[in-house]
Design a protein around this nucleic acid. Structure first.
Lengths: 98, 98
DNA sequence: GATGAATAGAAATTCAAC
DNA sequence: GTTGAATTTCTATTCATC
């Protein structure tokens, strides 16, 4: 399912990068061969429950994983299980467990 | 300091209500006699490090206190100390400690 | 430094198409 | 059910003003 692969890629991207806007995310996804628009990313972000927070480093807004709840963790874990995950994505699980 | 009083009122309002937009917050602040515009609220939100998250009840976005960090907690506690705080606002501290 | 009016910029939704 | 183009809605910033 392409949508799940894309969403797990989004989790990876926001974990490893400072993503300031949805357009940033679109660019990075396109660089990874995901042909997608801002409208879809907006929906993905809502489904993943991602939040925009202030980055300590830059003082600017960036996307972040939501504060862990059973709902969001289950969603993340499901996506990671469903997709072919690189070692980078495994690191996300570690981040979640912090 | 009017700004701090307003910001602690904001903490109270988002803790006790589902605030979906900055305009919502402006309305509620005006109802509480804070004469303020969206531009100022945008700045307050950034300074307080507030985030927009999905509400479990409504499935819609609402403003929320940030995940606790020493920085944000200190900021909240400072504001609560500085201002004349109602019993309602004391409840916010309890929420933060959860 | 704090703020508002206006504007630019970003994000959510609509509406159609698939 | 998923998506994109266009649009609406919402938010951040600019540029004055105090």
């Amino acid at each position: 399912m392409a949508r799940n692969v894309r969403q797990s890629k989004i989790l990876e991207l926001i974990s490893l990068n400072e993503i300031e806007t949805q357009e940033d995310l679109v660019s990075k996804l396109r660089a990874s061969k995901f042909d997608v628009t801002q409208a879809t990313i907006s929906r993905d972000i809502k489904e993943l429950g991602l939040i925009k927070i202030l980055s300590n480093e830059s003082g600017r807004y960036k996307y972040s994983l939501a504060e862990a709840t059973s709902h969001t963790s289950n969603k993340y874990i499901y996506l990671l299980k469903e997709s072919v995950i690189s070692i980078k994505t495994v690191k996300i699980v570690i981040v979640l467990a912090k």
